[in-house]
Amino acid sequence: MRYGLYLGCNMPAIRPDVERAMRLALPILGIELVDLEGYACCPAFGTFPSADEIASLAISSWNLSIAEEKGVDVVVQCGSCYSSLRMARAKLLKDEEKRERVNELLGIAGKKFEGKPCTRHLIDVLYNEVGTEKISQVIKKNLKGLKAVVQYPCHTRFPSEVLGFDNPGRPRMLKEIVEALGAEVQHYSRELQCCGGSGGFARQAYQDAVKFTKKKYDAMKNETQPDMIVVNCITCLMYMDKIQKDLSKEGEEFSIPVFDYAQILALCMGFDPKEVASISVIPRDKIIEKITGAMS
Protein backbone atom coordinates (compact mmCIF):
# COMPACT_ATOMS: atom_id res chain seq x y z
CA MET A 1 0.00 0.00 0.00
CA ARG A 2 1.57 3.25 -1.14
CA TYR A 3 -0.12 6.53 -0.54
CA GLY A 4 0.86 10.10 -1.11
CA LEU A 5 0.68 11.81 2.27
CA TYR A 6 -1.25 15.04 2.00
CA LEU A 7 -0.82 16.99 5.23
CA GLY A 8 -2.66 20.22 4.45
CA CYS A 9 -1.74 23.46 6.19
CA ASN A 10 -2.87 23.17 9.80
CA MET A 11 -1.27 19.89 10.68
CA PRO A 12 2.35 20.62 9.79
CA ALA A 13 2.09 24.14 11.21
CA ILE A 14 -0.02 23.79 14.35
CA ARG A 15 -0.31 20.12 15.22
CA PRO A 16 2.81 18.53 13.81
CA ASP A 17 2.64 15.84 16.50
CA VAL A 18 -0.19 14.34 14.47
CA GLU A 19 2.03 14.39 11.39
CA ARG A 20 4.69 12.63 13.39
CA ALA A 21 2.18 10.08 14.62
CA MET A 22 1.05 9.33 11.08
CA ARG A 23 4.56 9.06 9.76
CA LEU A 24 5.49 6.63 12.52
CA ALA A 25 2.37 4.57 12.85
CA LEU A 26 1.10 4.03 9.34
CA PRO A 27 4.18 2.22 7.95
CA ILE A 28 3.78 -0.35 10.72
CA LEU A 29 0.40 -1.19 9.25
CA GLY A 30 2.01 -1.70 5.90
CA ILE A 31 1.20 1.73 4.52
CA GLU A 32 4.13 3.21 2.66
CA LEU A 33 3.89 7.00 2.76
CA VAL A 34 5.19 9.05 -0.14
CA ASP A 35 5.71 12.78 0.33
CA LEU A 36 3.85 14.97 -2.14
CA GLU A 37 6.65 17.41 -2.66
CA GLY A 38 5.51 20.89 -3.47
CA TYR A 39 1.89 20.47 -2.52
CA ALA A 40 -0.07 23.60 -1.59
CA CYS A 41 -3.29 24.39 0.26
CA CYS A 42 -6.08 22.03 -0.87
CA PRO A 43 -7.47 24.93 -1.17
CA ALA A 44 -9.65 25.45 1.89
CA PHE A 45 -13.24 26.39 1.07
CA GLY A 46 -12.83 29.84 2.60
CA THR A 47 -10.00 30.71 0.24
CA PHE A 48 -10.06 30.35 -3.54
CA PRO A 49 -13.27 28.29 -3.70
CA SER A 50 -14.97 31.40 -2.30
CA ALA A 51 -13.33 33.71 -4.81
CA ASP A 52 -12.69 31.97 -8.12
CA GLU A 53 -13.78 28.51 -8.99
CA ILE A 54 -11.29 27.87 -11.78
CA ALA A 55 -8.43 29.11 -9.64
CA SER A 56 -9.60 26.83 -6.89
CA LEU A 57 -9.83 23.83 -9.19
CA ALA A 58 -6.40 24.65 -10.57
CA ILE A 59 -4.91 24.57 -7.08
CA SER A 60 -6.59 21.26 -6.23
CA SER A 61 -5.39 19.71 -9.44
CA TRP A 62 -1.92 21.10 -8.78
CA ASN A 63 -1.94 18.95 -5.67
CA LEU A 64 -3.47 15.95 -7.37
CA SER A 65 -1.04 16.19 -10.26
CA ILE A 66 1.82 15.69 -7.85
CA ALA A 67 0.29 12.42 -6.74
CA GLU A 68 -0.33 11.60 -10.35
CA GLU A 69 3.35 12.11 -11.16
CA LYS A 70 4.23 9.72 -8.35
CA GLY A 71 1.57 7.25 -9.35
CA VAL A 72 -0.07 7.10 -5.96
CA ASP A 73 -3.45 7.66 -4.40
CA VAL A 74 -3.62 10.29 -1.70
CA VAL A 75 -4.30 9.75 1.98
CA VAL A 76 -5.62 12.67 4.02
CA GLN A 77 -6.44 13.19 7.66
CA CYS A 78 -7.97 16.67 7.46
CA GLY A 79 -11.68 16.50 6.64
CA SER A 80 -11.88 19.66 4.65
CA CYS A 81 -8.75 18.87 2.62
CA TYR A 82 -10.33 15.50 1.86
CA SER A 83 -13.56 17.16 0.82
CA SER A 84 -11.94 19.91 -1.22
CA LEU A 85 -9.60 17.59 -3.15
CA ARG A 86 -12.23 15.00 -3.76
CA MET A 87 -14.97 17.40 -4.84
CA ALA A 88 -12.55 19.14 -7.19
CA ARG A 89 -11.63 15.87 -8.84
CA ALA A 90 -15.27 14.88 -9.20
CA LYS A 91 -16.12 18.24 -10.76
CA LEU A 92 -13.22 18.09 -13.19
CA LEU A 93 -13.94 14.54 -14.26
CA LYS A 94 -17.54 15.48 -14.93
CA ASP A 95 -16.92 18.79 -16.67
CA GLU A 96 -14.68 18.66 -19.68
CA GLU A 97 -14.68 22.39 -20.23
CA LYS A 98 -13.44 23.10 -16.75
CA ARG A 99 -10.88 20.35 -17.08
CA GLU A 100 -9.48 21.95 -20.19
CA ARG A 101 -9.38 25.36 -18.64
CA VAL A 102 -7.62 23.97 -15.57
CA ASN A 103 -5.10 22.08 -17.68
CA GLU A 104 -4.34 25.28 -19.55
CA LEU A 105 -3.49 26.88 -16.25
CA LEU A 106 -1.53 23.87 -14.99
CA GLY A 107 0.36 23.95 -18.27
CA ILE A 108 1.86 27.27 -17.25
CA ALA A 109 3.48 25.44 -14.35
CA GLY A 110 4.31 22.43 -16.45
CA LYS A 111 1.72 20.23 -14.79
CA LYS A 112 -1.21 18.23 -15.99
CA PHE A 113 -4.37 16.84 -14.44
CA GLU A 114 -5.76 13.55 -15.66
CA GLY A 115 -7.66 12.63 -12.56
CA LYS A 116 -6.09 9.25 -11.90
CA PRO A 117 -5.24 9.57 -8.23
CA CYS A 118 -8.02 9.07 -5.81
CA THR A 119 -8.08 10.86 -2.49
CA ARG A 120 -8.82 8.62 0.47
CA HIS A 121 -9.49 9.59 4.02
CA LEU A 122 -7.38 7.96 6.69
CA ILE A 123 -10.42 6.30 8.31
CA ASP A 124 -11.31 4.76 4.96
CA VAL A 125 -7.80 3.43 4.40
CA LEU A 126 -7.45 2.10 7.92
CA TYR A 127 -10.83 0.41 7.94
CA ASN A 128 -11.10 -0.84 4.40
CA GLU A 129 -7.49 -1.40 3.36
CA VAL A 130 -5.79 -2.29 6.61
CA GLY A 131 -8.68 -3.70 8.57
CA THR A 132 -9.45 -3.78 12.26
CA GLU A 133 -7.88 -7.19 12.74
CA LYS A 134 -4.50 -6.07 11.56
CA ILE A 135 -4.69 -3.00 13.78
CA SER A 136 -5.44 -5.16 16.81
CA GLN A 137 -2.60 -7.47 15.93
CA VAL A 138 0.20 -4.95 15.57
CA ILE A 139 -0.36 -2.81 18.65
CA LYS A 140 1.80 -3.31 21.70
CA LYS A 141 -0.46 -1.60 24.18
CA ASN A 142 -4.16 -1.22 24.21
CA LEU A 143 -6.88 1.02 25.48
CA LYS A 144 -8.70 -1.58 27.57
CA GLY A 145 -10.70 0.02 30.34
CA LEU A 146 -10.83 3.36 28.58
CA LYS A 147 -14.03 4.84 27.36
CA ALA A 148 -14.05 6.94 24.24
CA VAL A 149 -16.48 8.90 22.15
CA VAL A 150 -15.73 9.48 18.50
CA GLN A 151 -16.21 12.44 16.22
CA TYR A 152 -16.92 11.68 12.58
CA PRO A 153 -15.68 14.49 10.36
CA CYS A 154 -18.65 15.98 8.46
CA HIS A 155 -16.43 16.38 5.46
CA THR A 156 -16.06 12.63 5.16
CA ARG A 157 -19.81 12.09 5.26
CA PHE A 158 -21.37 14.65 2.92
CA PRO A 159 -22.10 14.74 0.08
CA SER A 160 -22.01 10.95 0.25
CA GLU A 161 -22.23 10.40 -3.47
CA VAL A 162 -18.93 12.22 -3.99
CA LEU A 163 -17.01 11.39 -0.86
CA GLY A 164 -18.82 8.81 1.16
CA PHE A 165 -17.17 5.58 2.18
CA ASP A 166 -19.05 4.92 5.39
CA ASN A 167 -22.80 4.91 5.97
CA PRO A 168 -23.47 8.67 5.95
CA GLY A 169 -26.34 8.60 8.43
CA ARG A 170 -24.98 5.85 10.66
CA PRO A 171 -21.19 5.85 10.29
CA ARG A 172 -19.34 3.17 12.26
CA MET A 173 -15.85 2.84 10.83
CA LEU A 174 -14.09 5.25 13.18
CA LYS A 175 -15.80 3.58 16.11
CA GLU A 176 -14.63 0.18 14.99
CA ILE A 177 -11.02 1.16 14.47
CA VAL A 178 -11.03 2.75 17.93
CA GLU A 179 -12.50 -0.44 19.31
CA ALA A 180 -9.72 -2.32 17.56
CA LEU A 181 -7.39 -0.56 19.97
CA GLY A 182 -9.36 -1.95 22.88
CA ALA A 183 -11.33 1.08 23.97
CA GLU A 184 -15.02 1.03 24.64
CA VAL A 185 -16.76 3.48 22.34
CA GLN A 186 -19.88 5.04 23.73
CA HIS A 187 -22.65 6.54 21.64
CA TYR A 188 -24.42 9.70 22.66
CA SER A 189 -27.33 11.54 21.13
CA ARG A 190 -25.33 14.28 19.45
CA GLU A 191 -22.48 12.11 18.27
CA LEU A 192 -23.12 13.17 14.71
CA GLN A 193 -23.54 16.87 15.43
CA CYS A 194 -20.90 18.90 13.61
CA CYS A 195 -18.14 20.17 15.92
CA GLY A 196 -18.86 23.64 14.58
CA GLY A 197 -15.22 24.53 14.20
CA SER A 198 -14.82 24.76 10.47
CA GLY A 199 -15.49 27.70 8.19
CA GLY A 200 -16.91 31.09 9.06
CA PHE A 201 -19.34 30.27 11.85
CA ALA A 202 -16.80 29.99 14.65
CA ARG A 203 -14.76 32.79 13.18
CA GLN A 204 -17.55 35.31 12.71
CA ALA A 205 -19.92 34.39 15.53
CA TYR A 206 -17.72 32.62 18.00
CA GLN A 207 -20.10 32.98 20.95
CA ASP A 208 -22.95 31.44 18.95
CA ALA A 209 -20.70 28.64 17.80
CA VAL A 210 -19.72 27.98 21.40
CA LYS A 211 -23.40 27.75 22.34
CA PHE A 212 -23.97 25.34 19.50
CA THR A 213 -21.06 23.16 20.51
CA LYS A 214 -21.97 23.30 24.17
CA LYS A 215 -25.12 21.32 23.41
CA LYS A 216 -22.89 18.61 22.04
CA TYR A 217 -20.65 18.63 25.11
CA ASP A 218 -23.61 18.68 27.48
CA ALA A 219 -25.06 15.63 25.79
CA MET A 220 -21.68 13.94 25.80
CA LYS A 221 -21.21 14.59 29.49
CA ASN A 222 -24.75 13.65 30.53
CA GLU A 223 -24.98 10.49 28.51
CA THR A 224 -21.46 9.09 28.62
CA GLN A 225 -18.38 9.19 30.82
CA PRO A 226 -15.67 9.43 28.20
CA ASP A 227 -12.01 9.32 29.06
CA MET A 228 -11.29 10.83 25.70
CA ILE A 229 -12.66 12.10 22.44
CA VAL A 230 -11.17 10.51 19.34
CA VAL A 231 -11.29 12.50 16.14
CA ASN A 232 -9.69 12.13 12.76
CA CYS A 233 -9.72 15.61 11.30
CA ILE A 234 -7.41 18.44 12.15
CA THR A 235 -10.20 20.99 12.56
CA CYS A 236 -12.22 18.72 14.84
CA LEU A 237 -9.05 18.10 16.83
CA MET A 238 -8.12 21.72 17.31
CA TYR A 239 -11.63 23.02 17.85
CA MET A 240 -12.93 20.31 20.13
CA ASP A 241 -9.83 20.72 22.25
CA LYS A 242 -9.76 24.49 22.39
CA ILE A 243 -13.45 25.08 22.90
CA GLN A 244 -13.42 23.24 26.21
CA LYS A 245 -11.25 25.99 27.58
CA ASP A 246 -13.72 28.61 26.44
CA LEU A 247 -16.59 26.64 27.89
CA SER A 248 -14.77 26.47 31.20
CA LYS A 249 -14.57 30.25 31.20
CA GLU A 250 -18.34 30.16 31.38
CA GLY A 251 -18.17 27.86 34.36
CA GLU A 252 -18.61 24.59 32.47
CA GLU A 253 -15.88 22.12 33.22
CA PHE A 254 -15.51 19.39 30.65
CA SER A 255 -11.77 18.71 30.36
CA ILE A 256 -12.10 15.71 28.13
CA PRO A 257 -8.81 14.95 26.39
CA VAL A 258 -9.00 14.99 22.60
CA PHE A 259 -6.81 12.76 20.46
CA ASP A 260 -6.43 12.26 16.82
CA TYR A 261 -6.78 8.63 15.87
CA ALA A 262 -3.24 8.56 14.52
CA GLN A 263 -2.02 9.68 17.91
CA ILE A 264 -3.63 6.97 19.97
CA LEU A 265 -2.67 4.46 17.31
CA ALA A 266 0.96 5.56 17.59
CA LEU A 267 0.74 5.47 21.38
CA CYS A 268 -0.60 1.94 21.27
CA MET A 269 2.28 1.02 19.04
CA GLY A 270 4.56 2.25 21.75
CA PHE A 271 5.84 5.47 20.22
CA ASP A 272 7.04 8.27 22.39
CA PRO A 273 4.18 10.46 23.52
CA LYS A 274 6.49 13.45 23.45
CA GLU A 275 6.70 13.03 19.69
CA VAL A 276 3.24 11.85 18.79
CA ALA A 277 0.98 13.50 21.35
CA SER A 278 2.61 16.53 22.84
CA ILE A 279 0.39 19.44 21.78
CA SER A 280 -3.01 20.05 23.30
CA VAL A 281 -5.04 22.57 25.25
CA ILE A 282 -6.79 20.09 27.54
CA PRO A 283 -4.14 18.07 29.33
CA ARG A 284 -3.88 14.50 28.13
CA ASP A 285 -1.16 13.25 30.45
CA LYS A 286 -3.30 10.94 32.53
CA ILE A 287 -4.64 9.09 29.55
CA ILE A 288 -1.24 8.97 27.96
CA GLU A 289 0.15 7.53 31.17
CA LYS A 290 -2.54 4.91 31.21
CA ILE A 291 -1.82 3.95 27.65
CA THR A 292 1.89 3.85 27.93
CA GLY A 293 1.62 1.99 31.20
CA ALA A 294 -0.81 -0.55 29.83
CA MET A 295 0.30 -4.00 28.82
CA SER A 296 -0.67 -5.32 25.50
Binding site: L7, P16, E19, G38, Y39, A40, A58, W62, G110, K274
Partner: peptide
Amino acid sequence: LGLPEIPPTIAKFTELLKKFQAMLRET
Protein backbone atom coordinates in the same frame (compact mmCIF):
# COMPACT_ATOMS: atom_id res chain seq x y z
CA LEU B 1 9.13 16.07 17.42
CA GLY B 2 11.63 14.45 15.14
CA LEU B 3 10.20 16.01 11.99
CA PRO B 4 12.07 17.96 9.30
CA GLU B 5 11.96 21.66 10.05
CA ILE B 6 10.14 22.49 6.87
CA PRO B 7 7.57 20.03 5.63
CA PRO B 8 7.87 18.88 2.02
CA THR B 9 5.32 21.36 0.80
CA ILE B 10 5.46 24.16 -1.70
CA ALA B 11 6.96 26.25 1.09
CA LYS B 12 10.12 24.23 0.72
CA PHE B 13 10.43 24.63 -3.05
CA THR B 14 10.65 28.29 -4.03
CA GLU B 15 10.83 27.43 -7.72
CA LEU B 16 7.56 25.63 -7.51
CA LEU B 17 5.98 28.50 -5.62
CA LYS B 18 6.96 30.81 -8.48
CA LYS B 19 5.28 28.50 -10.98
CA PHE B 20 2.26 28.25 -8.71
CA GLN B 21 1.98 32.02 -8.63
CA ALA B 22 2.50 32.29 -12.35
CA MET B 23 -0.37 29.90 -12.84
CA LEU B 24 -2.65 31.85 -10.55
CA ARG B 25 -1.72 35.11 -12.22
CA GLU B 26 -3.77 33.86 -15.16
CA THR B 27 -6.93 33.43 -13.15
